[in-house]
């Protein structure tokens, strides 16, 4: 075991940080979704729903700004969507941490690759792709 740790000193630390980050992200986001879900069911349990046709405007919480606005008035659907947002950001944050990890290893090629992945995701966040 000692020898193994010696082989990748910094790499091992980063792996433990990444593992913890992923676990905390999933637990935190699922807790938020669960809280929102309970409140949502308490207020809407007897309502009738039909998801038979896709309507882009059915949920008003389809952007980060709208979710935060809804969160301000403690809307249950906004709380669920906030949990979903936390979940989406968990692997994104993982990429950010990996970039720092590669930076401490002075592996600039992979810092660049990580940034490239991050740029793709940030581009998809720009809201222009859905039309």
């Amino acid at each position: 075991m000692m020898k193994k740790d010696k082989d990748f000193p910094r790499g091992k630390d980063i792996e433990i940080i990444l593992g913890t980050l992923l676990r905390v992200g999933v637990i935190a986001s699922m807790s938020v979704v669960l809280i929102g879900g309970v409140v949502y069911l308490l207020f809407n349990y007897s309502g009738i729903i039909d998801y038979g046709t896709f309507d882009a405007h059915r949920t008003e919480f389809s952007s980060i700004a709208a979710i935060f606005l809804g969160l301000g008035r403690l809307d249950s659907e906004a709380i669920i969507q906030f949990g979903v947002l936390l979940l989406i950001f968990t692997p994104i944050l993982r990429v950010v941490f990996s970039i720092f990890g590669f930076l401490t290893e002075r592996d600039y090629l992979y810092v660049l690759i990580g940034l490239l992945v991050l740029i793709v995701i940030l581009f998809s966040l720009s809201n222009r792709l859905t039309g």
Binding site: Y40, N44, I49, D55, T59
Partner: peptide, 27 residues
């Protein structure tokens, strides 16, 4: 996770992620 996050953001903006379905599915 990262691959799914990239497309999830697009779905979210389009209104494809409905809290009433996403909640029981995810949990």
């Amino acid at each position: 996770g990262v691959t799914a996050a990239a497309s999830a953001v697009v779905y979210l903006h389009r209104g494809q992620i409905d809290p009433g379905i996403a909640m029981p599915v995810a949990v």
